[in-house]
Design a binder for these strands. Structure first.
Lengths: 127, 127
DNA sequence: CTGTATCCGATGAGATACTG
DNA sequence: CAGTATCTCATCGGATACAG
């Protein structure tokens, strides 16, 4: 089972076209997870997202949305009004990601204390 | 529930000391996950890890191990022989991470096709 | 064998200014 | 309103050389 993980996760030589790597990269980057969780609440327009995640730069907002859209997690819908309105919403695929993501969040919250203690101990020993 | 996620995952103003962020950062970086999965098989010595993950540089091997050790996922044990031997093994905390991680891996494998199709479609539309 | 130290290029990400 | 285009700086990560 674990050996299967290793292969799946990118042990050479197929590191690049690994099915997991793409997901991990997206989950690991600074804004994707927060944006998915925000869009899980309800669809948002561009400006709404900016206000919902106040400290994201416009550049990163655009780029993260593009990446999420490219992977099929987010759908972009343009309303040709003046001024233009654009709505972003999670796709079914994006919503399905919430399940394993929730597992991770849950684990992180539960083990928070242990991790903090481990860090404190480590830093104490390594002046 | 989702609102709780947002707070937990680092919506301002407590982005830095967020319990999730640390986990996500570790999961997202290039080598941590692969190393955890490798150590989940059995304890490894430094050189064994290097051989098990052939394309990691010595610099990144050391650094990733330090980070994992600091967070309490990995335990380092030195045998004062000559030449020195050092063994790395998962802690209970590290092993417990396998559960949500497995969920993520599982999801990634299952949705692989959808993601690939989404990417192809996106790239087709955006010449 | 198990690491450190250094250099350096590639990428990530913020700030700012401009456009249909 | 919903983006692009630059510029710039920090961090990531590989290669190489050295050390206990």
């Amino acid at each position: 089972m674990l050996d299967g993980f290793r292969r799946a996760i990118g042990i050479e030589p197929d590191f690049d076209n690994c099915p997991i790597r793409g997901v991990l990269d997206r989950i690991g980057d600074k804004w994707s997870t927060l944006m998915v969780l925000t869009l899980a609440l309800r669809p948002h327009r561009f400006g709404e997202l900016k206000r919902a995640i106040p400290d994201i730069s416009q550049r990163m907002l655009t780029q993260t949305l593009r990446d999420l859209q490219r992977d099929g997690y987010v759908a972009r819908k343009v309303f040709p009004t003046t001024p233009p309105a654009v709505e972003y919403r999670l796709t079914d695929l994006g919503r399905s990601l919430m399940v394993p993501l929730a597992g991770l969040v849950d684990w992180a919250v539960k083990t928070r204390g242990e991790v903090e203690a481990a860090r404190a101990a480590f830093d104490r020993e390594n002046v």
